[in-house]
C-alpha cells in the first residue's frame, strides 16, 4: 500500500465533498436557468476555456444548445449522486433485512435466501438491470428501484455471516436470559454488531450505483432528457463526438472523479473494518 488508509479516505472524502457541495450550491448561484436554451447560435459548441460570441467565458465549454457544460455537469451531479446514494442505501436495506432474516430464522428460509442470493450473484448485474429497466418505462424511479433490487446480494451475504456469529455470542444469550424481546435483541444487539462489513459494501455500492445509473442513462433507459444525468449528457454528446468531443467527454470526468473517490474510501474502510476473506463481491 502506497498511501495509508486514512490518507485515502481523506482524499476520497474531499473529492466527494467538493463535488457534492458544487452540485448543490452552483445551480443556486447560477445567473441563468441551466435547462433553458437561449442565444443558441452565439453560444453553441464553444470549446473549453473560451469565450462565446456574447462574451461569456466557459470553463468547460458549451453543448450544441449553447448550455454551459460546467453548470449542467454540476446539475447532473445532483441527480446522479442522489440516485447513486439512495440506490445503494435501498440495496443495503434489502440486504440487511434478508441477511438478518436468514441468520435469525435459519432452516428453509435461510436456505431459500442463500440460494436466491447465489443465483443472482451468478448473473452480471448489468444484465439484470437491463431486464428490469427494459420492462418498465424509463425514469429516475425505475433506475432507483432496479438498483435496489439488484444490489443487495453481497450485503445480505456479509450480514448473514456476521449475524450468525453474533447470534451465538454469550452477550446475546445473556440478553435473552434477561428477558429482552426478539425485536429489541435483533435491532439493539445483533444488528449493530453485524453491520460493519455491510457499511463497507454500501460505500463501494454507491460508486457502483452511480456508474450503473449513468450507464443506463447513457443507453437511454435511465434519467430522461432534458433532466441532465452524467450518463445522458455523455450520450447527448455522441452526435457531435468528432467535431466537439468535449460535450461527451466533460461529464465523464465528474463521473470518474466520483468513482475514484468512492473506490478510495471503500478500499480504505475495507482494510480497516473487514477481516480477511470477507470481501464483498459486488
Amino acid at each position: 500500500m502506497t498511501a495509508t488508509a486514512s490518507t485515502r479516505v481523506r482524499i476520497g472524502a474531499t473529492i466527494l465533498a467538493v463535488l457534492a457541495l458544487a452540485a448543490v450550491g452552483a445551480p443556486l448561484v447560477a445567473s441563468s436557468d441551466p435547462l433553458r436554451i437561449e442565444a443558441v447560435l452565439a453560444r453553441r459548441t464553444v470549446a473549453p476555456f473560451s469565450l462565446d460570441a456574447t462574451g461569456t467565458w466557459h470553463l468547460l465549454g458549451t453543448d450544441r444548445f449553447g448550455r454551459d457544460l460546467l453548470m449542467r455537469t454540476l446539475l447532473a451531479g445532483r441527480i446522479s449522486l442522489a440516485i447513486g446514494l439512495s440506490g445503494a442505501l435501498l440495496a443495503s436495506a434489502i440486504g440487511v433485512t434478508l441477511g438478518l432474516l436468514a441468520a435469525w430464522r435459519g432452516g428453509p428460509i435461510d436456505t431459500a435466501i442463500r440460494w436466491v442470493t447465489d443465483a443472482m450473484l451468478a448473473m452480471p448485474r448489468l444484465v439484470l438491470l437491463l431486464v428490469g429497466a427494459a420492462l418498465w418505462p424509463p425514469s429516475a424511479w425505475t433506475v432507483l428501484l432496479v438498483l435496489g433490487a439488484t444490489g443487495w446480494m453481497s450485503v445480505a451475504r456479509l450480514v448473514r455471516a456476521e449475524a450468525r456469529q453474533v447470534r451465538d455470542a454469550t452477550f446475546v444469550e445473556a440478553a435473552r436470559a434477561l428477558g429482552v424481546s426478539e425485536r429489541v435483541l435483533l435491532w439493539r444487539h445483533v444488528l449493530p454488531n453485524a453491520i460493519g462489513p455491510a457499511i463497507v459494501a454500501t460505500t463501494l455500492g454507491v460508486g457502483n450505483a452511480i456508474l450503473l445509473e449513468s450507464g443506463l442513462s447513457f443507453l437511454g433507459l435511465g434519467v430522461q432528457p432534458p433532466a441532465p444525468s452524467w450518463g445522458n449528457m455523455i450520450a447527448g454528446g455522441r452526435e457531435l463526438l468528432l467535431t466537439a468531443p468535449w460535450i461527451a467527454l466533460v461529464p465523464g470526468l465528474a463521473l470518474i472523479a466520483t468513482a475514484v473517490a468512492t473506490a478510495l474510501i471503500g478500499d480504505a474502510l475495507e482494510d480497516r473494518l473487514v477481516a480477511r476473506g470477507a470481501r464483498a463481491d459486488a
Binding site: 447513457f218 455523455i234 455522441r238 465523464g252 468513482a259
Partner: peptide, 13 residues
C-alpha cells in the same frame, strides 16, 4: 474507474 462507454468514446476521438 472509467466507464467503458466513456473510454470507448475517448478512443474513437
Amino acid at each position: 474507474a472509467m466507464p467503458a462507454y466513456w473510454l470507448a468514446l475517448l478512443l474513437v476521438v
